[in-house]
């Protein structure tokens, strides 16, 4: 490492650094084009320059306590819906994937429920859960829970026969096998489900927000759109996008930290000093 540090100033950029710089350059170019378009080409009721949107973010969105509260509620709804989805998704997934019989009985039903376009149920959901948070949580939950279930089931299914046989021949109990073979095996698949679940959860909550809301983010979105006021509208949408990015990143970080075989250092305790 010291050799590398000494020659750092002449070292060419690593592949990762080059990729990162090009990505930044691309984003800057897009922002610049949008800015120019806002100044010279766009209908001011539909699009305004990026700089004006940033200004609106301060002036109309972040300094309006009602909107900030609405965004807070939105974060709360996403979180609650997601936690519920994980709990139920994993439990149902484990139950459905635990035996061949369960899987063959339940899995087709789950798949059918998953492909139903849930938007068609949204009015019904609002009727039963009301205009408040409950409907949004329910809609986020019903979107997120299915990909989690499905990935848990398929994660359990792809456990290698060889590993199961090896564990059995070593005298592993059913619990040992689940704890050391099946669960670690399904972690990558589980996280696939969690990532997809988060995307759909955000979709569900925000869709419900837009569809019916008397004081939430959806209400303000509609308000700004109907006022032909793109500055605060895009500032608000940008805030939602930011929230979505943060949630997705949290899932990604959790995946990186919790996937077994990535992070731990193994300590070895032997009684005698190691001698060859």
């Amino acid at each position: 490492m010291s050799v590398a540090a000494n020659t750092a100033h002449v070292r060419p950029l690593t592949h990762g650094q080059r990729v990162f710089r090009w990505r930044l350059a691309f984003l800057a170019a897009v922002v610049l084009l949008l800015e120019l378009y806002g100044w010279y080409g766009a209908d001011p009721t539909a699009w305004v320059p990026v700089s004006k949107i940033m200004h609106s973010l301060y002036k109309d969105v972040l300094s309006d306590s009602k909107i900030v509260t609405a965004l807070g509620w939105c974060v709360m709804q996403i979180t609650v819906a997601y936690v519920l989805s994980i709990i139920f998704g994993v439990l149902i997934g484990l139950a459905a994937g635990s035996t061949n019989f369960n899987r063959r009985t339940l899995f087709p039903i789950i798949l059918i429920l998953y492909v139903i376009p849930q938007v068609s149920f949204l009015p019904l959901l609002v009727l039963s859960f009301g205009l408040g948070s409950a409907a949004k949580i329910a809609f986020g939950f019903s979107h997120a829970v299915f990909p989690i279930i499905i990935n848990v089931v398929s994660g359990m299914r792809s456990v290698r026969e060889l590993h199961l046989n090896a564990a059995r021949s070593m005298g592993a109990s059913r619990f040992d096998t689940i704890r050391h073979v099946i669960l670690p095996h399904m972690v990558p698949s589980l996280f696939n489900g969690l990532r997809l679940g988060m995307t759909l959860n955000l979709l569900g909550v925000i869709l419900a927000e837009l569809y019916v809301s008397t004081s939430g983010v959806g209400y303000y979105t509609k308000l700004f759109a109907e006022d032909f006021n793109p500055g605060p509208l895009f500032a608000l949408i940008g805030s939602l996008a930011f929230i979505a990015i943060v949630f997705n990143e949290l899932v990604r970080i959790a995946e990186h930290r919790l996937t077994p075989g990535k992070h731990k250092q193994t300590a070895i305790k032997t009684k005698k000093a190691e001698q060859p």
Binding site: L162, H163, A167, S169, M170, H180, V181, P184, H185, P260
Partner: peptide, 29 residues
């Protein structure tokens, strides 16, 4: 398991555990 140990054709080391952890769970089982 008290009488017999198996060695399979393909390595049955669990990829999510280090070598030493693989030994530990074999002994634990």
């Amino acid at each position: 398991p008290d009488q017999i140990a198996f060695v399979f054709q393909e390595s049955t080391l669990l990829p999510w555990y280090t070598v030493i952890e693989n030994f530990r769970i074999a002994l634990k089982f």
